[in-house]
């Protein structure tokens, strides 16, 4: 059944694994940047703490509460941006938003596993929540 296939495409095993075992969820010392994003309609939250050294994120913590997609997307984002420069991160954010809005069909990065979300328009905001928190952190 197609709707079942669509479900499996969104709830891939790797996505559920990031939801159950979120990466980089331990607190870090002396973050240089902090940000958060809250979706007032569903109450989902993502909090991002970063440590930037010479323009590179060398430590970070990503925490939150919410649905599997918002929390898995946050974990996937954290794993992807670690060790990258803010310029590289800006490009990743642009690509990921393009994937969610249907501009790109797939991505080179590990964030590609979230592409099943775009079949569920009401859930796209869940996948983007962490990126809003990151934007909040980097703009602060």
């Amino acid at each position: 059944m197609t709707e079942s296939a669509d479900l499996d495409e969104m709830y891939r095993e790797i996505v559920l694994d990031h939801h159950r075992n979120p990466r980089n969820s331990e607190p870090i010392d002396a973050p240089t940047h902090e940000g958060e994003a809250i979706n007032p309609f569903c109450g989902d939250e993502v909090h991002v703490k970063l440590h930037l050294q010479d323009g590179v994120i060398d430590h970070l913590s990503v925490t939150g509460v919410g649905c599997s997609i918002s929390q898995a997307a946050a974990s996937l984002m954290g794993a992807e941006i670690k060790g990258k420069t803010t310029e590289q991160i800006g490009e990743l954010a642009r690509q990921f938003k393009s994937l969610m809005s249907g501009g790109a069909d797939s991505l080179e990065s590990d964030l590609d596993v979230l592409k099943g979300v775009k079949r569920y328009p009401v859930r796209i905001k869940c996948a983007l929540l962490a990126w809003s928190a990151l934007e909040d952190a980097l703009s602060g």
Partner: peptide
């Protein structure tokens, strides 16, 4: 272990 939104989608 399953968030209500995920229940809703399924």
């Amino acid at each position: 272990g399953v968030h209500p939104h995920d229940v809703g989608t399924v």
